[in-house]
Write a protein that binds this DNA or RNA. Structure first.
Lengths: 223, 223
DNA sequence: CCTTTTCTCGTCATCTTGACGATAAACCGC
DNA sequence: GCGGTTTATCGTCAAGATGACGAGAAAAGG
Protein backbone atom coordinates (compact mmCIF):
# COMPACT_ATOMS: atom_id res chain seq x y z
CA UNK A 1 0.00 0.00 0.00
CA UNK A 2 1.10 3.54 -0.68
CA UNK A 3 0.32 6.57 1.40
CA UNK A 4 0.56 10.37 1.18
CA UNK A 5 3.81 12.16 2.00
CA UNK A 6 4.00 14.74 4.77
CA UNK A 7 6.51 17.13 6.23
CA UNK A 8 6.58 17.38 10.02
CA UNK A 9 7.51 20.49 11.96
CA UNK A 10 7.58 21.47 15.59
CA UNK A 11 6.27 24.86 16.65
CA UNK A 12 6.82 26.35 20.07
CA UNK A 13 4.55 28.34 22.32
CA UNK A 14 7.12 29.83 24.66
CA UNK A 15 5.53 31.73 27.54
CA UNK A 16 7.01 33.87 30.26
CA UNK A 17 5.87 36.56 32.67
CA UNK A 18 7.32 40.02 32.12
CA UNK A 19 6.23 43.22 33.86
CA UNK A 20 3.26 41.44 35.39
CA UNK A 21 1.90 40.25 32.05
CA UNK A 22 2.01 36.98 30.17
CA UNK A 23 4.21 37.15 27.07
CA UNK A 24 4.89 34.79 24.20
CA UNK A 25 8.07 34.48 22.14
CA UNK A 26 7.52 35.44 18.49
CA UNK A 27 9.89 35.52 15.54
CA UNK A 28 9.69 37.45 12.32
CA UNK A 29 9.98 34.98 9.51
CA UNK A 30 13.19 35.30 7.51
CA UNK A 31 12.27 32.77 4.81
CA UNK A 32 9.33 32.05 2.54
CA UNK A 33 6.46 31.48 2.90
CA UNK A 34 4.96 34.31 4.93
CA UNK A 35 8.31 36.11 4.87
CA UNK A 36 8.26 39.08 7.22
CA UNK A 37 5.21 37.89 9.16
CA UNK A 38 5.29 37.26 12.91
CA UNK A 39 5.03 33.59 13.81
CA UNK A 40 5.79 31.07 16.49
CA UNK A 41 9.36 29.77 16.51
CA UNK A 42 9.71 26.32 15.00
CA UNK A 43 11.12 24.27 12.17
CA UNK A 44 11.33 20.93 10.46
CA UNK A 45 11.96 17.75 12.39
CA UNK A 46 15.25 16.22 11.29
CA UNK A 47 15.55 12.83 9.68
CA UNK A 48 16.67 10.91 12.74
CA UNK A 49 15.24 13.07 15.47
CA UNK A 50 12.56 12.36 18.05
CA UNK A 51 9.81 14.95 18.52
CA UNK A 52 10.81 16.14 22.03
CA UNK A 53 14.42 16.41 20.85
CA UNK A 54 13.35 18.56 17.93
CA UNK A 55 11.38 20.81 20.29
CA UNK A 56 14.36 21.22 22.62
CA UNK A 57 16.65 21.93 19.69
CA UNK A 58 14.37 24.61 18.28
CA UNK A 59 14.00 26.15 21.73
CA UNK A 60 17.77 26.29 22.12
CA UNK A 61 18.22 27.72 18.62
CA UNK A 62 15.61 30.45 19.09
CA UNK A 63 16.18 31.45 22.69
CA UNK A 64 19.85 30.59 23.06
CA UNK A 65 19.27 28.26 25.99
CA UNK A 66 17.47 25.11 26.96
CA UNK A 67 14.91 25.29 29.74
CA UNK A 68 16.88 25.04 33.00
CA UNK A 69 14.15 24.83 35.60
CA UNK A 70 11.62 25.67 32.95
CA UNK A 71 9.03 23.28 31.55
CA UNK A 72 8.46 21.76 28.11
CA UNK A 73 5.49 19.60 27.18
CA UNK A 74 3.69 18.59 24.05
CA UNK A 75 0.66 20.76 23.34
CA UNK A 76 -1.18 19.37 20.30
CA UNK A 77 -0.78 18.65 16.59
CA UNK A 78 -2.26 20.59 13.69
CA UNK A 79 -2.55 19.23 10.21
CA UNK A 80 -5.32 20.84 8.20
CA UNK A 81 -4.65 20.27 4.47
CA UNK A 82 -4.40 23.98 3.61
CA UNK A 83 -2.51 25.19 6.66
CA UNK A 84 0.81 25.51 4.80
CA UNK A 85 1.11 26.52 1.12
CA UNK A 86 4.14 24.24 0.64
CA UNK A 87 1.95 21.14 0.88
CA UNK A 88 0.95 18.70 3.58
CA UNK A 89 2.71 19.85 6.73
CA UNK A 90 1.74 18.50 10.12
CA UNK A 91 3.08 20.48 13.04
CA UNK A 92 3.51 19.17 16.55
CA UNK A 93 3.23 22.13 18.90
CA UNK A 94 5.09 22.23 22.19
CA UNK A 95 4.46 24.47 25.17
CA UNK A 96 7.40 25.92 27.10
CA UNK A 97 7.10 27.83 30.35
CA UNK A 98 10.22 29.81 31.25
CA UNK A 99 11.35 32.29 33.88
CA UNK A 100 11.88 35.83 32.66
CA UNK A 101 14.99 35.83 30.49
CA UNK A 102 17.24 38.32 28.77
CA UNK A 103 16.04 39.54 25.39
CA UNK A 104 15.96 36.68 22.89
CA UNK A 105 18.25 36.62 19.88
CA UNK A 106 17.06 36.02 16.34
CA UNK A 107 17.65 32.43 15.23
CA UNK A 108 18.62 30.86 11.95
CA UNK A 109 15.39 31.32 10.03
CA UNK A 110 14.23 34.46 11.81
CA UNK A 111 15.14 38.07 11.16
CA UNK A 112 13.98 39.15 14.61
CA UNK A 113 12.61 37.76 17.85
CA UNK A 114 10.66 39.46 20.62
CA UNK A 115 8.42 38.94 23.60
CA UNK A 116 4.86 39.94 22.70
CA UNK A 117 1.79 40.06 24.95
CA UNK A 118 0.16 36.64 24.87
CA UNK A 119 -3.03 38.13 23.49
CA UNK A 120 -1.27 39.10 20.27
CA UNK A 121 -3.02 38.00 17.06
CA UNK A 122 -2.35 38.17 13.35
CA UNK A 123 0.36 35.52 13.23
CA UNK A 124 1.32 33.46 10.18
CA UNK A 125 -0.27 30.11 9.28
CA UNK A 126 -2.63 28.85 12.01
CA UNK A 127 -0.38 30.14 14.76
CA UNK A 128 -3.10 32.34 16.28
CA UNK A 129 -4.98 29.19 17.14
CA UNK A 130 -1.90 27.38 18.43
CA UNK A 131 -0.94 30.29 20.63
CA UNK A 132 -4.47 30.50 22.02
CA UNK A 133 -4.43 26.78 22.77
CA UNK A 134 -1.10 27.11 24.53
CA UNK A 135 -2.27 29.99 26.69
CA UNK A 136 -5.39 28.11 27.64
CA UNK A 137 -3.32 25.04 28.51
CA UNK A 138 -1.09 27.14 30.74
CA UNK A 139 -4.08 28.75 32.47
CA UNK A 140 -5.59 25.37 33.14
CA UNK A 141 -2.38 23.75 34.32
CA UNK A 142 -1.82 26.42 36.94
CA UNK A 143 -4.96 25.18 38.65
CA UNK A 144 -3.97 21.58 39.11
CA UNK A 145 -0.17 21.47 38.95
CA UNK A 146 2.69 23.39 40.57
CA UNK A 147 3.88 24.52 37.12
CA UNK A 148 3.61 28.18 38.07
CA UNK A 149 7.08 27.69 39.55
CA UNK A 150 8.41 27.10 36.03
CA UNK A 151 7.88 30.83 35.44
CA UNK A 152 9.95 31.67 38.51
CA UNK A 153 13.70 31.72 39.18
CA UNK A 154 15.06 28.92 41.38
CA UNK A 155 14.27 30.92 44.50
CA UNK A 156 11.23 33.13 44.67
CA UNK A 157 8.83 34.78 47.06
CA UNK A 158 5.16 33.96 47.47
CA UNK A 159 4.42 37.38 46.00
CA UNK A 160 6.36 36.49 42.85
CA UNK A 161 4.39 33.28 42.55
CA UNK A 162 1.17 35.17 43.06
CA UNK A 163 2.24 37.57 40.33
CA UNK A 164 2.54 34.60 37.98
CA UNK A 165 -1.01 33.50 38.71
CA UNK A 166 -2.32 37.02 38.32
CA UNK A 167 -0.50 37.50 35.02
CA UNK A 168 -1.52 34.17 33.50
CA UNK A 169 -5.11 34.35 34.64
CA UNK A 170 -5.52 38.10 34.30
CA UNK A 171 -7.09 38.35 37.74
CA UNK A 172 -6.23 39.77 41.14
CA UNK A 173 -5.75 37.40 44.05
CA UNK A 174 -5.95 38.16 47.76
CA UNK A 175 -2.34 37.98 49.04
CA UNK A 176 -3.29 36.57 52.45
CA UNK A 177 -5.49 33.72 51.21
CA UNK A 178 -3.01 32.92 48.45
CA UNK A 179 -0.18 32.72 50.96
CA UNK A 180 -2.20 30.31 53.10
CA UNK A 181 -3.16 28.07 50.19
CA UNK A 182 0.29 27.86 48.66
CA UNK A 183 2.16 27.18 51.87
CA UNK A 184 -0.55 24.72 52.89
CA UNK A 185 -0.53 22.61 49.72
CA UNK A 186 1.84 19.72 50.31
CA UNK A 187 4.92 19.72 48.09
CA UNK A 188 4.17 22.94 46.22
CA UNK A 189 6.90 25.15 47.72
CA UNK A 190 9.60 24.59 50.34
CA UNK A 191 10.84 27.48 52.50
CA UNK A 192 14.50 28.42 52.55
CA UNK A 193 16.38 30.17 55.34
CA UNK A 194 16.89 33.42 53.47
CA UNK A 195 14.82 36.56 53.16
CA UNK A 196 14.69 39.19 50.44
CA UNK A 197 16.58 42.42 51.06
CA UNK A 198 16.38 45.86 49.53
CA UNK A 199 12.84 45.78 48.17
CA UNK A 200 10.23 48.08 49.63
CA UNK A 201 8.12 46.62 52.40
CA UNK A 202 8.81 43.87 54.86
CA UNK A 203 11.39 41.31 53.67
CA UNK A 204 9.82 38.15 52.27
CA UNK A 205 10.93 34.58 52.72
CA UNK A 206 12.39 32.87 49.67
CA UNK A 207 11.02 29.49 48.59
CA UNK A 208 12.03 26.92 46.04
CA UNK A 209 9.76 24.48 44.28
CA UNK A 210 8.62 21.34 46.07
CA UNK A 211 8.45 17.81 44.74
CA UNK A 212 4.71 17.51 44.07
CA UNK A 213 3.54 17.00 40.47
CA UNK A 214 -0.13 17.70 41.19
CA UNK A 215 -1.74 20.25 43.47
CA UNK A 216 -3.96 18.96 46.18
CA UNK A 217 -6.17 20.77 46.80
CA UNK A 218 -6.13 22.57 43.44
CA UNK A 219 -5.97 26.36 43.18
CA UNK A 220 -9.03 27.16 41.09
CA UNK A 221 -9.36 30.39 39.19
CA UNK A 222 -12.46 32.48 39.87
CA UNK A 223 -15.04 32.50 37.11
CA UNK B 1 15.58 23.96 1.75
CA UNK B 2 14.76 20.30 1.75
CA UNK B 3 13.32 18.34 4.60
CA UNK B 4 12.76 14.70 5.60
CA UNK B 5 9.67 12.85 4.43
CA UNK B 6 7.17 11.38 6.87
CA UNK B 7 4.06 9.28 6.81
CA UNK B 8 1.28 10.36 9.17
CA UNK B 9 -1.21 8.00 10.80
CA UNK B 10 -3.99 8.36 13.32
CA UNK B 11 -4.35 5.78 16.08
CA UNK B 12 -7.38 5.51 18.31
CA UNK B 13 -7.69 4.80 22.00
CA UNK B 14 -11.36 3.83 22.12
CA UNK B 15 -12.59 3.34 25.68
CA UNK B 16 -15.88 2.07 27.04
CA UNK B 17 -17.19 0.62 30.29
CA UNK B 18 -18.34 -3.00 30.14
CA UNK B 19 -19.28 -5.18 33.10
CA UNK B 20 -18.04 -2.56 35.51
CA UNK B 21 -14.57 -2.40 33.99
CA UNK B 22 -12.81 -0.05 31.61
CA UNK B 23 -12.18 -1.64 28.21
CA UNK B 24 -10.24 -0.56 25.14
CA UNK B 25 -10.92 -1.48 21.53
CA UNK B 26 -8.11 -3.55 20.00
CA UNK B 27 -7.67 -5.02 16.53
CA UNK B 28 -5.56 -7.92 15.37
CA UNK B 29 -3.36 -6.64 12.58
CA UNK B 30 -4.22 -8.13 9.21
CA UNK B 31 -1.29 -6.58 7.30
CA UNK B 32 2.44 -6.25 7.75
CA UNK B 33 4.26 -5.17 9.78
CA UNK B 34 3.42 -6.85 13.09
CA UNK B 35 0.88 -9.04 11.31
CA UNK B 36 -1.19 -10.96 13.82
CA UNK B 37 -0.30 -8.71 16.75
CA UNK B 38 -2.91 -6.86 18.77
CA UNK B 39 -2.81 -3.10 18.23
CA UNK B 40 -4.83 0.07 18.48
CA UNK B 41 -7.10 0.72 15.51
CA UNK B 42 -5.79 3.33 13.13
CA UNK B 43 -4.44 4.03 9.69
CA UNK B 44 -2.85 6.50 7.33
CA UNK B 45 -4.17 10.01 6.97
CA UNK B 46 -5.42 10.54 3.43
CA UNK B 47 -3.96 13.08 1.05
CA UNK B 48 -6.62 15.74 1.47
CA UNK B 49 -7.93 14.92 4.91
CA UNK B 50 -7.80 16.88 8.14
CA UNK B 51 -6.62 15.08 11.28
CA UNK B 52 -9.97 15.01 13.14
CA UNK B 53 -11.66 13.80 9.96
CA UNK B 54 -9.17 10.96 9.66
CA UNK B 55 -9.84 10.01 13.29
CA UNK B 56 -13.60 9.97 12.74
CA UNK B 57 -13.20 7.96 9.55
CA UNK B 58 -11.05 5.33 11.25
CA UNK B 59 -13.46 5.16 14.16
CA UNK B 60 -16.34 4.57 11.78
CA UNK B 61 -14.41 1.96 9.80
CA UNK B 62 -13.34 0.03 12.88
CA UNK B 63 -16.44 0.24 15.05
CA UNK B 64 -19.10 0.63 12.40
CA UNK B 65 -20.43 3.87 13.82
CA UNK B 66 -19.41 7.40 14.58
CA UNK B 67 -19.65 8.61 18.15
CA UNK B 68 -23.29 9.66 18.66
CA UNK B 69 -23.21 11.18 22.13
CA UNK B 70 -19.70 9.88 22.59
CA UNK B 71 -16.59 12.00 22.70
CA UNK B 72 -13.52 12.30 20.49
CA UNK B 73 -10.48 14.43 21.25
CA UNK B 74 -6.86 14.56 20.27
CA UNK B 75 -4.60 12.77 22.73
CA UNK B 76 -0.96 13.27 21.69
CA UNK B 77 1.49 12.60 18.88
CA UNK B 78 4.28 10.03 18.81
CA UNK B 79 7.17 10.10 16.39
CA UNK B 80 10.26 8.33 17.69
CA UNK B 81 12.51 7.47 14.72
CA UNK B 82 12.38 3.69 15.29
CA UNK B 83 8.75 3.34 16.25
CA UNK B 84 7.71 1.89 12.87
CA UNK B 85 9.97 -0.35 10.76
CA UNK B 86 8.54 1.12 7.55
CA UNK B 87 10.35 4.41 8.13
CA UNK B 88 9.53 7.76 9.67
CA UNK B 89 5.90 7.52 10.77
CA UNK B 90 4.38 10.10 13.07
CA UNK B 91 1.07 9.07 14.59
CA UNK B 92 -1.50 11.44 16.00
CA UNK B 93 -3.42 9.56 18.68
CA UNK B 94 -7.05 10.33 19.40
CA UNK B 95 -9.08 9.38 22.45
CA UNK B 96 -12.69 8.26 22.04
CA UNK B 97 -15.08 7.67 24.93
CA UNK B 98 -18.16 5.68 23.96
CA UNK B 99 -21.18 4.12 25.67
CA UNK B 100 -21.22 0.34 25.80
CA UNK B 101 -21.82 -0.89 22.26
CA UNK B 102 -22.53 -4.15 20.50
CA UNK B 103 -19.50 -6.28 19.69
CA UNK B 104 -17.24 -4.50 17.18
CA UNK B 105 -16.66 -5.84 13.71
CA UNK B 106 -13.25 -6.31 12.15
CA UNK B 107 -12.34 -3.49 9.81
CA UNK B 108 -10.46 -3.33 6.55
CA UNK B 109 -6.93 -3.91 7.80
CA UNK B 110 -7.86 -6.04 10.81
CA UNK B 111 -8.58 -9.74 11.02
CA UNK B 112 -10.38 -9.35 14.34
CA UNK B 113 -11.52 -6.70 16.82
CA UNK B 114 -12.40 -7.00 20.49
CA UNK B 115 -12.88 -5.15 23.74
CA UNK B 116 -9.95 -5.85 26.04
CA UNK B 117 -9.45 -4.70 29.64
CA UNK B 118 -7.74 -1.31 29.54
CA UNK B 119 -4.79 -2.68 31.48
CA UNK B 120 -3.86 -4.99 28.60
CA UNK B 121 -0.23 -4.82 27.46
CA UNK B 122 1.91 -6.39 24.76
CA UNK B 123 0.53 -4.36 21.85
CA UNK B 124 2.34 -3.67 18.58
CA UNK B 125 4.59 -0.65 17.99
CA UNK B 126 4.49 1.82 20.90
CA UNK B 127 0.79 1.25 21.46
CA UNK B 128 1.26 0.16 25.08
CA UNK B 129 2.41 3.65 25.84
CA UNK B 130 -0.34 5.32 23.82
CA UNK B 131 -3.01 3.23 25.51
CA UNK B 132 -1.59 4.07 28.95
CA UNK B 133 -1.58 7.78 28.07
CA UNK B 134 -5.18 7.55 26.90
CA UNK B 135 -6.34 5.83 30.08
CA UNK B 136 -4.57 8.40 32.21
CA UNK B 137 -6.15 11.22 30.20
CA UNK B 138 -9.58 9.71 30.72
CA UNK B 139 -9.00 9.30 34.45
CA UNK B 140 -7.90 12.88 34.75
CA UNK B 141 -10.70 14.30 32.63
CA UNK B 142 -13.36 12.67 34.77
CA UNK B 143 -12.21 14.90 37.60
CA UNK B 144 -12.66 18.23 35.91
CA UNK B 145 -15.19 17.69 33.12
CA UNK B 146 -18.60 16.03 32.76
CA UNK B 147 -17.14 13.60 30.21
CA UNK B 148 -18.18 10.59 32.24
CA UNK B 149 -21.56 11.03 30.55
CA UNK B 150 -19.88 10.13 27.23
CA UNK B 151 -19.67 6.57 28.57
CA UNK B 152 -23.41 6.53 29.29
CA UNK B 153 -26.48 6.15 27.08
CA UNK B 154 -28.57 9.30 26.48
CA UNK B 155 -30.53 8.66 29.67
CA UNK B 156 -28.87 7.14 32.70
CA UNK B 157 -29.14 6.85 36.46
CA UNK B 158 -26.76 8.32 38.99
CA UNK B 159 -25.73 4.75 39.80
CA UNK B 160 -24.72 4.16 36.18
CA UNK B 161 -22.67 7.33 36.25
CA UNK B 162 -21.07 6.25 39.50
CA UNK B 163 -20.24 2.91 37.90
CA UNK B 164 -18.35 4.79 35.20
CA UNK B 165 -16.25 6.62 37.76
CA UNK B 166 -15.60 3.42 39.69
CA UNK B 167 -14.59 1.53 36.54
CA UNK B 168 -12.33 4.24 35.16
CA UNK B 169 -10.68 5.04 38.48
CA UNK B 170 -10.71 1.51 39.85
CA UNK B 171 -12.10 2.73 43.15
CA UNK B 172 -15.31 2.48 45.12
CA UNK B 173 -17.33 5.62 45.76
CA UNK B 174 -19.91 6.25 48.45
CA UNK B 175 -23.28 6.33 46.65
CA UNK B 176 -24.80 8.98 48.91
CA UNK B 177 -21.99 11.50 48.69
CA UNK B 178 -21.65 10.89 44.95
CA UNK B 179 -25.34 11.52 44.46
CA UNK B 180 -25.08 14.77 46.36
CA UNK B 181 -22.03 16.00 44.44
CA UNK B 182 -23.33 15.12 41.00
CA UNK B 183 -26.78 16.57 41.44
CA UNK B 184 -25.26 19.62 43.12
CA UNK B 185 -22.72 20.45 40.39
CA UNK B 186 -24.34 22.98 38.06
CA UNK B 187 -24.92 21.72 34.53
CA UNK B 188 -23.55 18.21 35.03
CA UNK B 189 -26.82 16.26 34.82
CA UNK B 190 -30.44 17.26 34.31
CA UNK B 191 -33.26 15.17 35.83
CA UNK B 192 -36.00 13.74 33.60
CA UNK B 193 -39.52 12.81 34.61
CA UNK B 194 -39.06 9.07 34.28
CA UNK B 195 -37.85 6.40 36.66
CA UNK B 196 -36.24 3.05 35.99
CA UNK B 197 -38.48 -0.01 36.17
CA UNK B 198 -37.76 -3.70 36.56
CA UNK B 199 -34.34 -3.55 38.17
CA UNK B 200 -33.84 -4.76 41.73
CA UNK B 201 -34.13 -2.12 44.42
CA UNK B 202 -35.93 1.14 44.50
CA UNK B 203 -36.51 2.73 41.06
CA UNK B 204 -33.99 5.43 40.19
CA UNK B 205 -34.54 8.68 38.41
CA UNK B 206 -33.17 8.96 34.89
CA UNK B 207 -30.95 11.91 33.98
CA UNK B 208 -29.46 13.24 30.79
CA UNK B 209 -26.27 15.25 30.46
CA UNK B 210 -26.28 18.95 31.24
CA UNK B 211 -24.69 21.76 29.30
CA UNK B 212 -21.58 22.37 31.42
CA UNK B 213 -18.17 21.78 29.85
CA UNK B 214 -16.24 21.96 33.12
CA UNK B 215 -17.11 20.64 36.55
CA UNK B 216 -17.29 23.14 39.32
CA UNK B 217 -16.47 22.03 41.89
CA UNK B 218 -14.39 19.16 40.45
CA UNK B 219 -14.88 15.55 41.50
CA UNK B 220 -11.42 14.54 42.66
CA UNK B 221 -10.36 10.93 42.86
CA UNK B 222 -9.01 9.73 46.20
CA UNK B 223 -5.28 9.17 46.37
C1' DC C 1 9.89 59.84 63.54
C1' DC C 2 6.02 59.09 61.00
C1' DT C 3 3.97 57.28 56.77
C1' DT C 4 3.79 53.86 53.30
C1' DT C 5 4.51 49.41 51.66
C1' DT C 6 4.50 44.58 51.84
C1' DC C 7 4.69 40.18 54.34
C1' DT C 8 2.67 37.11 57.43
C1' DC C 9 -0.40 35.36 60.86
C1' DG C 10 -5.33 35.25 62.76
C1' DT C 11 -10.39 35.40 62.86
C1' DC C 12 -14.86 34.19 61.36
C1' DA C 13 -18.87 32.95 58.71
C1' DT C 14 -19.89 30.01 54.96
C1' DC C 15 -19.29 26.20 51.92
C1' DT C 16 -17.57 21.57 50.90
C1' DT C 17 -16.23 17.06 52.11
C1' DG C 18 -16.38 12.41 53.92
C1' DA C 19 -18.53 9.07 57.00
C1' DC C 20 -22.67 7.19 57.95
C1' DG C 21 -27.82 6.86 59.77
C1' DA C 22 -32.41 6.34 58.12
C1' DT C 23 -36.32 5.94 55.18
C1' DA C 24 -38.52 4.83 50.57
C1' DA C 25 -39.65 1.68 47.17
C1' DA C 26 -38.86 -1.71 44.44
C1' DC C 27 -37.38 -6.98 43.98
C1' DC C 28 -36.89 -12.18 45.45
C1' DG C 29 -37.77 -16.58 47.56
C1' DC C 30 -40.94 -19.00 49.95
C1' DG D 1 -48.82 -12.48 50.77
C1' DC D 2 -44.73 -11.53 53.53
C1' DG D 3 -40.47 -10.84 55.59
C1' DG D 4 -35.61 -10.17 53.78
C1' DT D 5 -32.71 -7.98 50.38
C1' DT D 6 -31.37 -4.47 47.38
C1' DT D 7 -30.91 0.07 45.80
C1' DA D 8 -32.16 5.16 45.73
C1' DT D 9 -32.45 9.26 48.06
C1' DC D 10 -32.52 12.41 51.87
C1' DG D 11 -30.48 14.02 56.28
C1' DT D 12 -26.92 14.74 60.02
C1' DC D 13 -22.58 15.97 61.81
C1' DA D 14 -17.75 16.81 62.41
C1' DA D 15 -13.64 18.17 59.95
C1' DG D 16 -11.58 20.72 56.49
C1' DA D 17 -11.41 24.41 52.83
C1' DT D 18 -12.71 28.98 51.22
C1' DG D 19 -13.29 33.97 50.92
C1' DA D 20 -13.40 38.43 53.23
C1' DC D 21 -10.90 41.04 56.09
C1' DG D 22 -8.28 42.69 60.66
C1' DA D 23 -3.83 43.43 62.51
C1' DG D 24 0.93 43.25 63.74
C1' DA D 25 5.91 42.85 61.83
C1' DA D 26 9.52 44.71 59.33
C1' DA D 27 11.47 47.07 55.98
C1' DA D 28 12.04 51.81 52.83
C1' DG D 29 11.46 56.83 52.23
C1' DG D 30 10.91 61.28 53.38
Amino acid sequence: MTHPVFAVTVDLVVLTVRDGELHALLVRRGIEPQLGEWALPGGFVHADEDLPAAARRELAEETGLDAPGGHLEQLASYGAPERDPRGRVVTVAYLALLPDLPVPVAGTDASAAEWAPAGRRGLAFDHDRILADGVERARSKLEYTPLATAFCPPEFTIATLRGVYEAVWGTRIDPRNFHRKVTGATGFVEPTETLTDGDPGRPARLFHRGTATHLNPPILRPH
